[in-house]
Design a protein around this nucleic acid. Sequence first.
DNA 1: GCCGTTTTCGGCCCGACTGTTTTCAGTCG
Length: 575
Amino acid sequence: MNQEIAKIFREMAFILEAQNVAFKPRAYERSFEVLETLTDDVEDLYRKGGLKSLQQIPSIGKALAEHIEEYIKTKKIKEYQTLKKQLPVDISGLSAIEGLGPKKIQELYLKLKIKNVADLEEAISLGKIAKLENFGKKSEENITRGLSFAKTATTRIPLGYILPLAQSIVDKLKKVPGVKKVVLAGSIRRYQETIGDIDILALSDNTQKIMDVFVNLPEVDKILGQGLTKSTVHLKTGMDADLRVVAPEVFGAALQYFTGDKNHNVKVREIAISKGYKLSEYGLFKKEKIIACKTEEEIYNKLGMDYIPPEIRTDSGEIEAAIKHKLPKLISYGSLKGDLQTTTNWTDGETPIKEMAEAAIKLGLEYIAVTDHTQALTITHGLNEKMLMRQAKEIDKINLQYQKEGKNFRILKSAEININKDGTLDINDETLKKLEIVSVAVHSSFRMSKEDMTKRILCAIENPYVNILFHPTGRLINKREAYEVDMDAIILAAKKNNVVLELDCFPDRMDLKDVYVRKAVEAGVKIAIDTDSHSPEHLKFLEFGIGTARRAWVTKNDVINTWPVEKLLKWCSKK
DNA sequence: GCCGTTTTCGGCCCGACTGTTTTCAGTCG
């Protein structure tokens, strides 16, 4: 329901913008963004507390609450239908073309009756665009180019998969003579789970040189814009990259600006105005006089706030908390002592137990849990009770050896146990008792009703031996939707039964996602940040899980694998 | 249309780049 209404509000914002209506578009745009990430279902909120509780949602006032009410009751919003009649076009399709915004799309409709991408292609083939007032030959070329990009455009890519490319571009730019510093900004610096484009900030006194290198990189397909301080390119992978170059002395202001997100920046700038300042990428100004620009910290402090870490700059309470000096101390990178989900060649992993352990030791970890699949997942040759006990013996052997060598490392006996369709587990209690950590997950029948799936998972959570629920929503980014499940009920049950929810940081899982992690932690539920490694290479994904945890305001003590192994095991056995 | 430790009325972020213009609107982030 949230997504349906969000989409309508976005279209309303777009049409209002086309009609040059003042301020309303931003109000609708804000409500779209809020609804899109809201974890509570508006229908539930409305049933429980009516219009009043809808108005509790940030950026939703009387008028928008009534729109939501109307949609819940009638599946329609009259005002939307009226607006849509005035611009009855495929907004999402047309606006996906770079350079086409509300005004131009409206003009194309009014003058040429262009309603969708197919109409647009036809108009171009007939040479109609270039003849249009306010358009021209260049516009036609740009739209043509935009059309071909829109076809090959990649969807947002998981952070872990895009970072190597982004980093390699940064490394190349660093080598340009005269360049003092190059850093990643934007959604990458905020550790967002998926990335839409790569934002790079460079410090240099000679902007021309680095711009030339940037737009001529071998990774570049087309230059979309090139100026003295800002350039945009379309990469061969299908993603866009922006480079912003500023003078070294305004680094803090530029980094703050270029990190975003947009809503955070807007609010910070509004606060600047209310204090008689102006904030831009060039600094914090009082009239013409520069107040702060060297570091981000300085800028936040001058505005009466504590420093806000990039990951939580989303305008979801962090600014208010920073003013009150009540920001949490977020879990820091490198603070995990172990990884509680790793798969070995006993099932569908690539490497023997010991090799995985050695890789973990190299990364400075103190323990891993071996969590091979269990028997119901036949495709992975899942282990039965007998095999699990045989694996346990092997683990004992390696641990003993580590002990003799004086190594501070331990392999924990565990498994990724299937939750059957009826909520029972595919390993018997006798064997569960013998495992040091019992972790469970859904791997089949993803398309159950929300009610049945919730019951199924609650049943597993209530099993007295269960410690961790792995990848709680089952989603695979860009591949598989999350199954439908009542996350509030899961969180409640997890708290009650002392079951940990996993933040699986394999890049295309990132499951739980940030908004749910935040909810879980607020409810007092503990989190485990695991890689779900199927090869030693994957262990490095821990960093991305910490990034997401930080986005969710998670502190060190919320995460059980920051604990020493003794504390962890004691906590698990207390059940 | 939303919002409030200046305000329940009167504000609403800021700047770069492009293209079609003869000074600026549209788009983007």
